[in-house]
Nucleic acid binder design. Structure first.
Length: 277
DNA sequence: CCCTACCCCTGGGGGC
DNA sequence: TGCCCCCAGGGGTAGG
């Protein structure tokens, strides 16, 4: 599930609950995630105070008072849940972190997520972060930058935009949504996107991500509701998952024949075949 | 290097 | 109802 906006919202939710808290106890599941937990993770976290949060791509960094950071990745199905005394323990709970005033859990049925430890001063050197590309919401992410980056890549535009080594945080949903907003066809060869079109795409990506974060932010106020899930929200997609439905921007229903679905590198892409060229 | 195909894992939905 | 297949918002790796 989580792409950049969801991860950002989860991170903010974690910060709201955990910032400044001291960790009293950590319990880990026996079922492994994508990679084994670092040696002695539970013991190393106990007694530490949580001093800060950051996000890099789809990764969350939780900084501790001993110079270490906990690296979280939610995979496809990972969620952070606020556990209260009244809620029963959810299935697929892999990490339970009990702090002074709150308890949170990492729930991940598919177990594609991971938790690791990294020195705070060397976060960027962690193997999973070292090869990540540009942050799409940064000032450095401009049409000029993107045009130059795309010029060196072959392959369809959609697939290239999903590559975390180029842009960190875009996922399958927001790539489709951004290409629709920019009116660019997902199958266009990336190398043939010029500066004018890249100059359309960059603000489309930023606006798409910012709107989704804003929608998540508005849902954050509810994170204490009974199921306690942090950072997830119903966001209105214009094309994602809407194959066969009328295109929201075509003048009359049926003008474009409806939203189309395409499979690229094994992932679904949704687009309007008339508006996106 | 670059690109696609396949794999990891569980659950939900649709068709029969 | 049950079963089976497909699909799912993540990424890493093996091969072409």
């Amino acid at each position: 599930m989580p792409e950049l906006p969801e991860v950002e919202t989860v991170m903010r939710g974690m910060a709201a609950l955990l910032l400044g808290e001291r960790i009293r106890h950590v319990r880990l599941s026996h079922a492994p995630l994508r990679r084994p937990y670092p040696e002695g993770l539970a013991e190393r976290l106990r007694g530490r105070r949580i001093s800060g949060f950051a996000r890099r791509g789809k990764y969350i960094l939780m900084r501790l008072d001993d110079g270490m950071s906990v690296l979280w990745h939610l995979g496809m199905s990972g969620r952070i849940v606020h556990l209260t005394a009244s809620t029963p323990e959810p299935p697929h709970l892999h990490l339970r972190l009990e702090a002074e005033r709150v308890t949170v859990g990492l729930v991940d049925p598919r177990r594609f997520g991971l938790v690791d430890l990294v020195p705070t001063r060397a976060e960027e050197a962690h193997p999973l972060l070292a090869s990540l590309g540009i942050e799409p919401l940064s000032r450095a992410f401009t049409g000029r930058w993107l045009a130059a980056a795309l010029a060196r890549r072959s392959g369809p535009l959609k697939t290239v935009l999903l590559d975390q080594r180029l842009i960190a945080g875009l996922g399958n949903i927001y790539v489709s949504e951004s290409l629709y907003r920019a009116r660019l066809h997902p199958a266009r060869p990336a190398s043939l996107i010029g500066e004018a079109e890249a100059g359309r795409l960059v603000p489309a990506i930023k606006a798409t991500l910012r709107e989704a974060i804003a929608a998540g932010g508005s849902s954050l106020r509810d994170f204490a509701h009974p199921d306690g899930e942090l950072g997830y929200f119903q966001h209105r997609f214009r094309v994602y998952g809407k194959a066969g439905e009328p295109c929201p921007d075509c003048p009359a229903p049926g003008t474009c024949g409806g939203i189309a679905r395409l499979v690229q590198a094994g992932r679904s892409t949704f687009f309007c075949p008339r508006l996106q060229q």
